[in-house]
Every structure is written in structure tokens, then in C-alpha cells.
Design a protein around this nucleic acid. Structure first.
Length: 575
DNA sequence: GCCGTTTTCGGCCCGACTGTTTTCAGTCG
């Protein structure tokens, strides 16, 4: 469900790339990039803003505001259309190849007439790149390898796979005598829902042996760069891992730098520059004398800049720096705030483990309550029926005796039909403690129908949580098309929570939706949708997604006590 | 193209590494 803001963000980002390829001034390009990000992260719908409101968006001036207005009124951007005519679309595609930026793309286009990735691959194979100034044999090899890798792996991986790879490297290197500290940084530390490459940071006074060990790991297929403080490799699964080393006394500055995001870093560096300082991965220094001001910990560096420590998940330059200065940076929800899971399965339906094992895992996680929500009769493939549901409820009552500290609740994940109705009748629904309802089919309904369908489900007094609200499967299925604003309003009006599903290929709601939702007063539920005991560990991804959406503990239904949770359910039910 | 506890014009983040250079441009994060 691309919102207007997301659509305009994508258009401006494309505009920035096309400007680069048209040879425009670099600062002008950056202005478009900044505006794109700023619009994408803005919490009000562009359609609801007048010209003054548009210009209040950071990095949007008179010119950008006029263009946004043009798009809102005509559905098109005539200058962008002109640029598209001027610059072959294939050149943008070519810039996805590592080591190929706008300058080389232009050079290849102007000298050889190359305007697609395929043409480039052909030209490189035929040796046609030789002899062009600035391009040698090595460049030719790198481009061919880059194209192959792009075709085989095509970009980003899910966060759990990235985490496994990062932890693997860390475990392999942690034991080296030269390693003082080691951790992952980059988009993995910020917990974006997909990860492009992995950044590992090491504190050490003697980097060379670490670099060599890293380059020699058995999973390394190819060493892309091997310098004194930085080594980049490609693993056998096509994943790029960058290792950087810094002295221990620069750890904090380096961690900030390598955690990013890039735009967050740029903004705090600008703050440093305005004070006559210079911030880099080596520390915060006085620009004139080079005297060190701070470097050892993240807290010290932020404090020197006049800022509180900002959680990595919030470092996206979507207003966190301004909020930090104003003292309004929210204290975001933490893993330890979560008291239970509201969405889980067993092998009674499509889970992989029996009830006993799921409960044991939940108790081990320290939960004070846990809701078992197997699918309902509306999904025939699961073979569920009312008798089985009631039998499960009985078993739960028996098993409850084993868990004095954890209350086991009986729920179900209902299926939302095309018209918004769900499984079972009200009398049967009333027998459950808590109910999740989710879309499992008809993902391509028109926006009006899809929105009405979800809202009707929320109006059902027995439904407490909408599971994976947009239905996306990252890389495999687009989110359903709904009017998210209306969904949020209905969620607040009906007392229904929207789920942040922690499953790595869902992450749904996603970060931006969470931010929109909580700004509108929506209660969210951070669930794992576990189908096996080990899936309970995915909770941290959901918590991180909620943090990325600036959710506080008070915004989260399952950060509340059991009594408060029951009140939330009872308040909606009739009678 | 944006923006202003220096400014409505003249700035705009910083450093590592590669490749093809013989002093640096391009790319990346």
C-alpha cells in the first residue's frame, strides 16, 4: 500500500538518480535525495498539506513544494518526464552494479552507447571496455563479477539471515588475542527489515592479523578489498561483509559512524561543523587545532554535540535529531517491556511443534501471559474445527498447572473473508480469551473494498488484534492496497490493536506504518506469529520495528499487565 | 535546490580504498 508520501519519495529519489546521470550539480542531486527521504519519513499525508505545510517539511523549499503540488494535482511531474526521455532507464539499473556510479555509467554510455546492464555485460565480455580512459582490465573483471552477483542474489536479504551471518563472523573472530571489542553495525544494528550488506566493527591496536583471519574465513568466496583498517569480502552466499578496525579509544565515534544511517551521520556532522568541530569515525575534533573532544563511547560523542544517546533503531534522520535537541525524543519500547505474545501457533494447525513445547519456550522467555492462536475453521487447509478448538482449550486448562507464573490464554487467528466477516459465530467467539484476525487471501482487491473489509473485521466486537495488517511477504508479495489513515482511525474508534508481526519475512506493520499508527493513537501489538519454539526469538525484530516507528511502551498492548490486557478485550465486547 | 545563534548568497560531511593515475577521480558507506 504505497502511500502518497512513499510514491513521491520514490519519484524524487528517481529524479535524483536521473539528475546524476544527466551530469547535474552534485549539491542539487543531494537536495533531491534529501527531499525524497524527508518526504518519505514525514508523518502527515502530503494530500492534507497546504503550500505552507509542504514547505514546513525539512529540505522542501519553494521549488520542491511546487513540484509536489503539481504531482498531487496532475498525477505527474513534467520535468521528471522530460528527464526520463533524456536519460535511458537502463543507466539507472546499471548503477545497481557495485563500483559503477553515475560517472562510469555516463562514460560507458557516451563512448560505447551502452544503456542497459545486458549491453554492458556483452561489451565487457567482448573486451570492448579496454582502451577507454580510466577503465582497465581490473574494472572489466569487477563489473562482470558485479553483474553476476546482482543477477544471482539481487540485493537485500532478510534480517534473520543477516543476523546469523554477522554472528557467525563475530564468533569466529572474537577469540583472537588482538580483538578488544567486536560487534555488528550498519543497517543490521539499526534493524532495518532487509539488509544489503553487513558491517562488522572491531576495536584493536593491531589490525593486520584480524584482517587476515577475516579474509581467510571458510565462508569467504572472494576478497573485494583488503586495506589496513578495512576489508570487504563476498561470502559463498553472495553476501558482502565489511570489516573495519579502529583503536579502542575511537570506539564510540566509529560505532556511530558505521551504524549510520548515512543521513543521520551527515546531519550530526553538520552540527559539528557549525560549532567549528569535525566529526569522523576517528572522533570529534576541533577543526582548527585537531584537539580531540570525544570519541571513546557513543554517549560521550552525542553528549558533546548537545544530544542524548539516540537508539540505533531511530537513527534514520526522520526527525530524531531535532526531537533530541527539543527534549522530546520518546523513550521507545524495549524487549524487556514485553509481557507476553498474543499470536502463536501449534501443530494443531500449521505450527511445527506441539502445545507443550510452545508453552515451555514461552515460559523460558519469561512471559507472564501467552496466547495460543491456532487458525480457525475458515482455513480448510488447516483441518481445524470447533471440536478441536474446544479440546485444545481443555488441554490448556490442564497444562496451566505447570506454569504458575504464566497465564495461558486461549485465542485463535481468524480468517478475514472477502466481505470482512470471520470464522465462527458470536457465541463461539465469546469463548476465547483474545482473538486475532488476519487476511490470508484476496490480496489484490481494490483499495476501497480492501479497506472496508479490514474495517468491518475491526468492528467485530470480539476481534482484538489485526494480524500482519498489510499481508506483505518481503520480496515475494506486495502489501495489500488500503487507505491506512482510515484503518488507523477505525482501529482507534473500535479499540482494536494493529499487529507488528515479528516474522522476518513479514515485519508487518513495517516501521513507517508503526510511526503513522501511533501518532494517530493506535495501540499496537508486537507478536511473533511463532510456528515453532525458536520463532519466539524473532520478537526482537518486532520490537526493533516498533522502535523504528518510535513506539513507546504505553503504545504496546502486550507491554501491559494481564489485567490491563483483559480490560482491553472486555471493553470491546458486548454487555 | 535548500538554508541561516556567522549568512537571503555561498556554502553544502568525511575518510578509506581501488584502479589506473604519476597526484587523483570515482565509489562507497
Amino acid at each position: 500500500m504505497p502511500s502518497t508520501n512513499e510514491t513521491v519519495e520514490a519519484l524524487f529519489a528517481e529524479w535524483a538518480e536521473l539528475l546524476q546521470l544527466a551530469g547535474a550539480d552534485a549539491f542539487r542531486v543531494r537536495a533531491y535525495e534529501k527531499a525524497a527521504r524527508s518526504i518519505g519519513g514525514f508523518s502527515k499525508d502530503l494530500r492534507d498539506l497546504d503550500d505552507k505545510g509542504l514547505r514546513a517539511i525539512p529540505s522542501v523549499g519553494a521549488s520542491m513544494a511546487a513540484r509536489i503540488r503539481e504531482y498531487l494535482e496532475t498525477g505527474t511531474l513534467h520535468e521528471l518526464e522530460d528527464l526520463r526521455e533524456q536519460v535511458p532507464a537502463g543507466l539507472r539499473e546499471m548503477m545497481r552494479i557495485p563500483s559503477l556510479g553515475p560517472k562510469k555509467a555516463i562514460l560507458l554510455h557516451e563512448t560505447l552507447g551502452i544503456s542497459t546492464v545486458d549491453e554492458l555485460a556483452g561489451a565487457a565480455r567482448d573486451g570492448k571496455l579496454r582502451g577507454i580512459k580510466g577503465l582497465g582490465q581490473k574494472t572489466e573483471e569487477n563489473l562482470l563479477r558485479g553483474i553476476q552477483n546482482l543477477r544471482e542474489h539481487g540485493g537485500r536479504i532478510l534480517i534473520d539471515a543477516a543476523m546469523d551471518a554477522a554472528v557467525g563472523v563475530i564468533e569466529a573472530l572474537r577469540g583472537l588475542a588482538e580483538v578488544d571489542q567486536i560487534t555488528y553495525a550498519g543497517s543490521l544494528r539499526r534493524m532495518r527489515d532487509t539488509i544489503g550488506d553487513i558491517d562488522i566493527l572491531v576495536a584493536s591496536a593491531n589490525a593486520a592479523p584480524i584482517m587476515d583471519s577475516f579474509a581467510g574465513l571458510s565462508s569467504v568466496k572472494e576478497v573485494l578489498a583488503h586495506g589496513e583498517t578495512k576489508t570487504s569480502v563476498l561470502t559463498d552466499t553472495g553476501l558482502q561483509i565489511d570489516l573495519r578496525t579502529v583503536p579502542a579509544d575511537a570506539w564510540g565515534a566509529a560505532l556511530i559512524y558505521f551504524t549510520g544511517s548515512k543521513s543521520h551521520n551527515i546531519k550530526i556532522r553538520e552540527i559539528a561543523v557549525r560549532r567549528g568541530w569535525k566529526l569522523s569515525e576517528w572522533g570529534l575534533f576541533k577543526a582548527d587545532t585537531g584537539k580531540k573532544i570525544a570519541a571513546e563511547t557513543e554517549e560521550e560523542v552525542y553528549e558533546a554535540l548537545g544530544l542524548p544517546w539516540i537508539p540505533p533503531t531511530m537513527r534514520e534522520d526522520t526527525g530524531e535529531i531535532e526531537a533530541a535537541f527539543a527534549g522530546t525524543l520518546p523513550t521507545v519500547v524495549e524487549r524487556r517491556d514485553i509481557r507476553g505474545d498474543l499470536h502463536s501457533h501449534t501443530n494443531l494447525t500449521d505450527g511445527l511443534a506441539p502445545l507443550e513445547e510452545m508453552l515451555a519456550a514461552a515460559a523460558a522467555a519469561g512471559y507472564s501471559y501467552y496466547v495460543v492462536t491456532d487458525h480457525a475453521e475458515g482455513l480448510p487447509m488447516t483441518g481445524m474445527d470447533r471440536g478441536k478448538a474446544l479440546a485444545q482449550r481443555k488441554r490448556i486448562a490442564t497444562l496451566q498447572k505447570k506454569y504458575p507464573k504464566m497465564t495461558i490464554l486461549h485465542g485463535s487467528e481468524l480468517n478475514i473473508a472477502k466481505d470482512g466477516s470471520v470464522d465462527y459465530d458470536p457465541a463461539f467467539l465469546a469463548g476465547f480469551d483474545l482473538l486475532v484476525a488476519s487476511v490470508h487471501s484476496m490480496f489484490r482487491l481494490p483499495r476501497d473494498e480492501q479497506t472496508a473489509r479490514i474495517i468491518r473485521a475491526m468492528e467485530n466486537p470480539f476481534i482484538n488484534v489485526i494480524g500482519h495488517p498489510t499481508g506483505r511477504l518481503i520480496g515475494r508479495r506486495e502489501p495489500i492496497d488500503v487507505d491506512f489513515e482510515s484503518i488507523c482511525n477505525a482501529a482507534v474508534r473500535t479499540g482494536t490493536a494493529l499487529e507488528v508481526n515479528s516474522f522476518p519475512d513479514r515485519m508487518d506493520l513495517r516501521d513507517e506504518h508503526v510511526r503513522w499508527a501511533i501518532e494517530r493513537g493506535v495501540t499496537i501489538a508486537i507478536d511473533t506469529d511463532s510456528h515453532a519454539p525458536k520463532h519466539l526469538e524473532h520478537l526482537r525484530f518486532g520490537v526493533a520495528t516498533a522502535q523504528r516507528g518510535w513506539a513507546r511502551k504505553t503504545d504496546v498492548l502486550n507491554a501491559r499487565t494481564l489485567k490491563q490486557l483483559r480490560t482491553f478485550v472486555e471493553k470491546k465486547r458486548p454487555g
